[in-house]
Computed example of a mutant assay.
Amino acid sequence: MSTIMHEVPSTEDGAKEGTDRATGGRFAAGEDPAKREQILDGAKRAFMKYGFDAASMNDITREAGVSKGTIYVYFQNKEDLFSALIEREKGRFTESLRHIMAGRTDTRQALRDYGIAFVHQICDTDFIQALRAALGVVDRMPNLCQSFLINSPANARAVLAEFIDHQCRIGALKIDDTELAARQFIELATGNFFKFKLFGEMKTRPPESEVERVVDSAIHLFLAGYGTDKTR
């Protein structure tokens, strides 16, 4: 790891990356979003295949189809690359949830759609595999694991908290601490699936009927505690 973190990018590679758009019509070094995505896609394949610690920068360059110097134009080291990858994947999921919840006023169905989408993220994507990789480096990179949980605009829980806030304003829910309520709903809707998947007890994907049963039960409990006459 120490050799990886201290390699110096080739200036030749950096020069090849691009010229100022005003003069050459190309992106300046380190500013081409398509190239950045290409590197992140390659890093994702390498990390998923070998794990964070075992994946080398050579593995990443091979998967991304770029030179090592080009990677260093965009990212300082492997840790920086991994952090950026986590933020990208989290951002994509958050945006998909934001789209699901945008403009929704139907409390029960909106919670159902959110819960099912969250379970699908756990069961049908490499989310858990990425989380395991992050947990494997928690002692060296504590901020990386915290980024899975931090409450920010680019966080799936924040999307739910915003929806709950709106539902409280229109009288559909009565909640003093919407942040706590958002955490509670996510735990109710995804808790067993999350833990079973994380610890390898879930060998096959649960049937959709089971996903819906668990999410519907979560909604029932959530509205029993926080609902009003409009939603109970």
Rank of each mutant, 00 (worst) to 15 (best):
I4N: 15
M5Q: 15
H6Y: 12
H6F: 04
E7P: 07
V8P: 05
V8G: 06
S10L: 09
G14S: 15
G14V: 14
G14I: 14
A15Y: 06
G18W: 09
G18S: 07
T19Y: 11
T19F: 08
A22Y: 11
A22N: 11
F27G: 02
G30A: 07
E31C: 09
D32A: 01
A34G: 11
A34L: 14
Q38V: 07
Q38Y: 02
Q38G: 05
Q38M: 12
Q38E: 01
I39D: 00
L40V: 07
D41Y: 11
A43P: 02
A43V: 05
K44V: 02
R45W: 02
F47A: 01
F47P: 03
Y50C: 08
F52Q: 12
F52Y: 15
A54K: 15
D59R: 08
D59H: 14
D59M: 13
T61M: 13
R62I: 06
E63F: 12
E63S: 08
S67L: 02
K68P: 01
K68E: 04
G69H: 00
Y72N: 02
V73A: 03
Q76G: 01
L81C: 01
F82E: 06
S83H: 12
I86V: 10
I86K: 03
I86T: 10
I86D: 05
E89C: 06
K90C: 11
G91T: 03
R92N: 13
T94E: 14
E95G: 06
S96P: 04
S96V: 05
L97Y: 03
R98P: 00
G103H: 06
T107A: 08
R108H: 07
R108Q: 06
L111H: 04
R112Y: 06
G115W: 00
G115T: 04
G115R: 02
I116L: 14
A117Y: 10
F118R: 08
V119F: 05
H120W: 01
H120T: 10
H120V: 09
I122E: 00
I122D: 00
T125Y: 08
T125Q: 04
D126Q: 08
D126I: 03
F127T: 09
I128E: 00
I128G: 03
R132I: 09
R132M: 11
L135E: 15
V137I: 13
R140L: 13
P142R: 09
N143P: 07
C145P: 04
C145R: 06
Q146P: 05
S147M: 12
L149V: 15
I150P: 06
S152N: 12
A154T: 14
N155L: 03
V159Y: 01
L160M: 09
L160Y: 04
A161K: 05
E162Q: 07
I164V: 09
D165N: 04
D165M: 03
D165T: 08
I170Y: 05
A172T: 13
L173V: 07
L173T: 03
K174V: 10
D176P: 01
T178G: 00
Q184A: 11
F185T: 00
E187K: 09
T190G: 02
G191N: 02
F193Y: 05
F194Y: 12
F196C: 11
F199D: 11
G200V: 03
M202Q: 11
M202N: 01
T204L: 14
P207E: 04
P207S: 04
S209Q: 11
S209I: 13
V211W: 07
E212H: 13
E212K: 13
R213S: 06
S217P: 03
A224Y: 08
G225A: 12
G227W: 05
T228K: 06
K230P: 12
R232H: 04
R232D: 11
